[in-house]
Nucleic acid binder design. Structure first.
Length: 587
RNA sequence: GGGGCCGUAGUUCAGCUGGUUAGAACGCCGGCCUGUCACGCCGGAGGUCACGGGUUCGAGCCCCGCCGGCCCCGCCA
């Protein structure tokens, strides 16, 4: 038998002709006489009817059909009798009256039903991933992923980008995440590293005059996993020469606009809002603010400066701040709920949480007596709070106060259902600090990466006041999730050397680790910059998936194990010996 | 490295204060059924209560350990 149609294709216009379908048995409804089979393939479901009067032999064979058997079935396409049309199926007006059946491969009973909306443990799904992927939602996610990449490739082709592959076996570099290492057999004791990103190679490609590069690049980072983090993940990676930041941002906006139009039918308003890092931290307590809801954070330090509330005074005297936020209509929270909020604040790093209920009669709170009615009036005015709202206060060092408020902001929005569904709120966050001081390592570390260009006007401060130097770096945030980041790079050797020096990388080490880049910068490196998007997170948001695993065909568990293949695994002594590797693992 | 939730039939779960033979639904198997699409009806099989110890007259339940899955903090330039 030869397949003539897929299971999502047959329509009223096909009535009368013959067809051969191949696919998986979704369900069987055996009436003793008539047998109905829902036949499923990638494209859809078609009802097949086995009639004992018309084809007794075939009907007898169909008695044995079970879920997930792979079959070929041929017959005549007919209209369904009146009243039996299934409006849930695209093929629901017709059915195939079988006169031929071949069981291509009988299947064992699957360990879980191949349907959406059935709860199955994640470990079982991952072990039988090939069954899990048969579920319509998973198939749709992978199709969507493909569609996004197709739109991206098509768009970039139109803008003169060249897709170039860079090595997976590359060099371990300091800075950044932990590397995955690969031993070199022919160079005993030496290791390749799998790339955390194609960063250095794409910059070299700019020096090579490629001008516009992109790659759908797999990246590897040996760090702990999360719902939105896998040890290997995919970036849509770009690098361009002779452009400034704004050109990159608007090009990316154009690309994403096309993606959302094609994939979701959504018209994104452009340009996307832009916030400086400072502004994002100040208003939202996060460098990846979720703009789907308001709930902005306010600094009330100067307002409360004269109050007699010891906790505030103490924080302020230590050069700290007092941050406040108004939860609309939440003056009704119980003591228990307020305690939970306080607990959440403590988990986020606060020493405590002060609250004030705004009621028509005035203010209710253990700290009313310290702050006083007039001051509270001023504060609620500044927060545009009204009767029924709940005011929250955190007093601490600036960094902590921001982070705690930022965390409470997001948690509250989630908890109280203030996040609207089906919205896509983008924001560019720009003007990141170039470096931050790492207390544990007692040195400056690059906030983006060591190749990010400082802002020209801040360059003189590089040695004297590095904390104040801003970078030509930008992140793209979507619904509170960082989905992309990039920068204009350093393209001059002298600046790059100064940067390494700031980061405490000795010239000898810089030479050893990045010598090839430094040298390349001396051979006519054009000004260049780029960006990379996390494809998995983008697909995840566009699919409404709760985990990145739902948009990756073969993801790993939180312990970085592939339950399907059982990787990683032990290898033979001989393999280790060949690689000159000895382990200290005691079996 | 740390905090939290979970693990009972093929699956999803229930299982009281520790007490008789561990239940339900779906699925599976058999029978009946010619217009179903969550088909229906009748019957049946199916359990290492993740694993290992301990407490107890008695453990699915309590304690300790361990394995696994998930969420979070740290980490992720």
């Amino acid at each position: 038998m030869k397949r003539t149609d897929d299971c999502g294709r047959l329509r009223k216009t096909d009535i009368g002709r013959t067809a051969t379908l191949m696919g998986w048995v979704q369900t069987r409804r055996d009436h003793g006489g008539l047998i109905f089979i829902d036949l499923r393939d990638r494209e859809g479901i078609t009802q097949v009817v086995f009639n004992p009067t018309l084809s007794p032999d075939i009907h007898k064979q169909a008695k044995d059909l079970r879920s997930e058997d792979v079959i070929a079935v041929s017959g005549k396409v007919e209209a369904r009798p009146e009243g039996t049309v299934n409006t849930h199926l695209s093929t629901g007006k017709v059915e195939l009256i079988a006169d031929g059946l071949e069981i291509l491969n009988p299947a064992k009973t699957p360990p879980f039903p191949i349907e959406d909306n059935v709860l199955v443990s994640e470990s079982l799904r991952l072990k039988y991933r090939y069954l899990d992927l048969r579920r319509p939602r998973m198939l749709a996610n992978l199709k969507r992923r493909h569609q996004i990449l197709r739109v991206v490739r098509n768009f970039l082709d139109g803008y003169g980008f060249i897709e170039i592959e860079t090595p997976y076996l590359t060099k371990s570099t300091p800075e950044g995440a932990r590397d995955y290492l690969v031993p070199s057999r022919v160079n005993p004791g030496q290791f390749y590293a799998l790339p955390q990103s194609p960063q250095l190679f794409k910059q070299i490609l700019m020096v090579a005059g490629m001008e516009r590069y992109y790659q759908i690049a797999r990246c590897f980072r040996d760090e702990d996993l999360r719902a939105d983090r896998q040890p290997e993940f995919t970036q849509i990676d770009f690098e361009l020469s002779f452009v400034d930041r704004d050109e990159i941002l608007s090009l990316m906006e154009a690309m994403l606009t096309e993606v959302f139009q094609m994939v979701k039918g959504v018209s994104l308003p452009t340009p996307f809002p832009r916030l400086s890092y400072q502004e994002a931290m100040e208003r939202y307590g996060s460098d990846k603010p979720d703009l789907r809801f308001g709930l902005e954070i306010h600094d009330v330090s100067s307002l409360v400066a004269g109050s007699s509330f010891q906790v505030f005074q103490e924080a302020l005297s230590r050069k700290g701040v007092v941050k406040a936020m108004a939860l609309e209509g939440k003056a009704t929270l119980s003591r228990k709920e307020l305690d939970e909020l306080t607990e959440a604040a403590k988990t986020l790093g606060a020493k405590g949480l002060a609250w004030v209920k705004v009621s028509p009669q005035g203010f209710e709170s253990p700290i009313v007596k310290f702050l006083g009615e007039p001051l509270l009036q001023k504060i609620s005015g500044a927060l545009t709070a009204k009767a029924g709202d709940l005011l929250l206060f955190v007093a601490d060092q600036l960094k902590t106060a921001r982070e705690v408020m930022g965390g409470l902001r997001v948690q509250s929005a989630e908890r109280f259902g203030w996040i609207p569904a089906d919205q896509f709120r983008f924001a560019w966050v720009t003007d990141f600090p170039l470096v931050e001081y790492d207390e544990t390592e007692q040195r400056y570390v690059a906030m983006h990466h060591p190749f990010t260009s400082p802002m020209d006007e801040d360059l003189p401060l590089l040695e004297s006041e590095p904390r104040r130097v801003r970078a030509k770096a930008y992140d793209l945030v979507l619904n509170g999730s960082e989905i992309g980041g990039g920068s204009i790079r350093i393209h001059r050797r002298d600046v790059q050397s100064r940067m390494f020096k700031l980061l405490g990388i000795e010239p000898a080490e810089a030479q050893e680790k990045f010598g090839f880049l430094l040298e390349a910068l001396e051979y006519g490196a054009p000004p260049h910059g780029g960006i990379a998007f996390g494809l998995d997170r983008l697909v995840m948001i566009l699919s409404g998936a709760e985990s990145i695993r739902d948009v990756i065909a073969f993801p790993k568990t939180q312990k970085a194990i592939c339950l399907l293949s059982d990787a990683p695994s032990h290898v033979t002594e001989r393999q280790l010996k060949e690689l000159h590797i000895k382990t200290d693992v005691v079996e």
